[in-house]
């Protein structure tokens, strides 16, 4: 949900992106209107519109005149690419920092990742969904 860590329009954009990545919003499916977003999250409609427009600018959403906003073809792929790039900064860095604080060596960390990845693949946990 909405918090104070960054501008709300960015959070709205990220929420929609996450839904596209996880498949909740399939490509070519309609996205809720900005007013619906505003009412649902109890935020200013102009702010919601700014979040949605950001995704339009990035080519992830497109407008159909008089109908609404839709997920663009290839949006999921585009987002996955971007998120791969962010993965190192967002997850690996803090992971290694915390590991060294706890005295976990690189080899030990790799083993832990392997074990964890193994159970995750067997379970249904999604690696991507945050």
């Amino acid at each position: 949900m909405i918090d104070d860590s960054k501008p709300i329009f960015m959070q709205i954009a990220e929420l929609i992106e996450s839904d596209i990545v996880s498949g909740v919003l399939a490509e070519e499916s309609q996205v809720p209107s900005t007013n619906e977003f505003a009412a649902f999250y109890r935020i200013n409609p102009a702010t919601a519109a700014k979040g949605v427009n950001r995704l339009v600018e990035n080519g992830l959403l497109y407008k159909k005149r008089g109908i609404g906003m839709f997920v663009a073809q290839g949006a999921r792929h585009q987002l996955l690419e971007a998120r791969r790039h962010q993965f190192h900064e967002q997850y690996i860095r803090p992971l290694t920092a915390e590991a060294s604080k706890l005295g976990i060596g690189t080899q030990e960390l790799i083993t832990m990742i392997q074990t964890s990845a193994h159970t995750d693949v067997n379970g249904q946990g999604s690696v991507i969904n945050d």
Binding site: N35, A39, P45
Partner: peptide, 24 residues
């Protein structure tokens, strides 16, 4: 929020309860 979305106008919301209205 609902009414503003369909009928935009200038709203001045005076408040000392900032957390409650911040997102609006």
């Amino acid at each position: 929020v609902e009414d503003f979305a369909t009928h935009p106008r200038t709203i001045v919301l005076s408040s000392h309860l900032i957390d409650e209205v911040a997102n609006l």
